[in-house]
Amino acid sequence: MTGNLDRRDVTAKLLNDRDDLLVVAGLGAPCWDVAAAGDHDLNFGLWGAMGGAAMIGLGLALARPDRRVLVITGDGEQLMGLGSLSTIGSASPTNLAIAVLDNECYGETGMQPTATGLGTDLAAVAAACGFVATAQADRPEEVEATVALCRAAVGPVFAVFKISDDVPPQVVPPRQGPLLVSRFRSALGIQG
């Protein structure tokens, strides 16, 4: 049975007053959710590279230890990069948080069930891989504290939000990779 949290509400809270937060969005609905919260030069929204969102977050976190990095992705995307949780636990970046919007299904391909509804507890996997802070929000009253963990706790942080399987209207960010890269780097003051 899927959760009942609202994905757009959770995403808006994760990105509220984002200041200089660096954001990576996994492909599919989380990418639309992040766009719906407002396009931003410091968003890198994926249209492919399934399984890579968390590792893009790690590369960013290591390159910019002075900034907070938040990866917002889906359960299917994270399951494809399950090994990256081990890699991130080993590297242990204190400035990286991963938030999984978990509806227990592959929403872009016909709502087929994922492993998170069939026994895989992603937060427990992350904890077992060495993430220093992990949490799962099942009910609305748990969202605030779990968002705070993602935004401020010493990382690596891993949080699961059990969202409903509702499909809100698509809001799409730019899809040109070089544009997304160059505006992100420019916003960080990187030359060339």
Partner: peptide
């Protein structure tokens, strides 16, 4: 960074470049 599979490195390199 010790990877569990090489494809992680491709994503790692992407994040690194985004961060300069």
């Amino acid at each position: 960074v010790r990877l569990t599979t090489e494809q992680e490195g491709v994503a790692l390199a992407t994040g690194a470049w985004l961060g300069g």
